[in-house]
Write a protein that binds this DNA or RNA. Sequence first.
DNA 1: TAGATTGTTAATCGATTAACAATC
DNA 2: TAGATTGTTAATCGATTAACAATC
Lengths: 275, 275
Amino acid sequence: MATGRPTHPADRGRPANRGRGIPEATVARLPLYLRALTALSERSVPTVSSEELASAAGVNSAKLRKDFSYLGSYGTRGVGYDVEYLVYQISRELGLTQDWPVVIVGIGNLGHALANYGGFASRGFRVAALLDADHAVVGTTAAGLPVRHMDELEDIVEEEQVSIGVITTPPGAAQQVCDRLVAAGVTSILNFAPTVLSVPDGVDVRKVDLSIELQILAFHEQRKSGEEGAEQAAAPAPAKASAPARAAAKLRRTAATATTAAAGTDGDLPAVMPA
Amino acid sequence: MATGRPTHPADRGRPANRGRGIPEATVARLPLYLRALTALSERSVPTVSSEELASAAGVNSAKLRKDFSYLGSYGTRGVGYDVEYLVYQISRELGLTQDWPVVIVGIGNLGHALANYGGFASRGFRVAALLDADHAVVGTTAAGLPVRHMDELEDIVEEEQVSIGVITTPPGAAQQVCDRLVAAGVTSILNFAPTVLSVPDGVDVRKVDLSIELQILAFHEQRKSGEEGAEQAAAPAPAKASAPARAAAKLRRTAATATTAAAGTDGDLPAVMPA
DNA sequence: TAGATTGTTAATCGATTAACAATC
DNA sequence: TAGATTGTTAATCGATTAACAATC
């Protein structure tokens, strides 16, 4: 709290944040602010307060102001933030004022969905090519673009200066595709395959996992209906019964009708171990 | 560090974690462990060390052991963890030993992709119904299931005891769909529409945003090629030039060819303000 | 027993939040 | 000036990590 005391000695002369470092948590929220601001901009709203913008973005206003403080002093006390100006500043900070060619590898259902996703083009992302290994898919079109064969990957990445690759292949193919993308010069990968990818230093990987989010929801859903109970089942005896037996005792309950989902396979997406 | 000193008095007699609370960060990683363990299980690997499993899941072993400590003592010192036993315990903790009927609302490209996604069924998630408001889509089939009309939503949720809904509609429809789901009794929502949803207390919402991940990659990609530079552009003058002018001075650079992606629209996914 | 590996401690790090002085 | 709202401080909270005693 600023209680009227002088600035703490250790903080004197220190910039808001050392050097270039914007916290990861802040970076992850900038797209949310940008979306809310873009909506305001389309409605020709000239200025917005931290309170209004925070509510539109689904965060609290203290967090928003703190986040913005890492970018600079872009607001006006007593007034708020200029919408257009802030849209520009956040876009620039995120790197969206430049064109980002991306390749999408694996044109199944999800690849199709992404190729058609409007939220990309509007933010500077341009689909440079759609690639697939299956000759039955190559030559068809998706979102107005021809699906090209994996063989062309290296040429396309070089010619189009692609630095971002999107992987929507089955998990068994993901690491190979990743390796080829990296070898060709791609340094950022968005991975939709449920596989842990290994990449060399300097390459960023982000992961979107459709089933993980659902599993997290199930966890919380489970504790809504009666805290415990419902999910009763007999724990299978572990191979070495010694230590786990202690634990098993803790949760001993009546036998029940639990399906052994855990022991099932991954359906058409068999999990693959990383190298 | 455990330096041989006795347990800190405040910690004496305290359970590993008070009551039911497993940290959110831990819950979010349990699906990763489960996937790696399932792969080991399919290869009939009987036991695994924290080091091996952590590497397969893409985390470090200290974090993994800490995470598991919230679940209980399921390992054996000097040996490791029994794979089958741990698969079961994590599945149970996540609530995956029971059947979770879900409805998917909005059967466009993404809805199709999700309906076909194999990672759901194998983890106890069962698609109870596919719903769409468009009569041109209703009656077609996706993943072997008929697409039904939104009018049936309430009946289906009640009859099938659906507690989880997946929204893959355009953003303009998301809040309405969300309201109907909640009114019908759904208490967990997985939202793929780029919209902030407002829900009453007791309803969980998780969000998957396809373009946000790409924007975060762009942010990091931007600082790889030359720290700064590349993304030079003249900042547009803010409406009120007073305060922002100071900030603008900080970043004044030469004019450039930046595309104004930021001012663009959301393509076929126009952003919508929350209520 | 000796070697291996867990479960837990405690330090550190990073993120969140409320509060308020600064300032429009 | 009075009212409004930012930018920043400092407290708190939660997550990560290395280290190692406990224990198989």
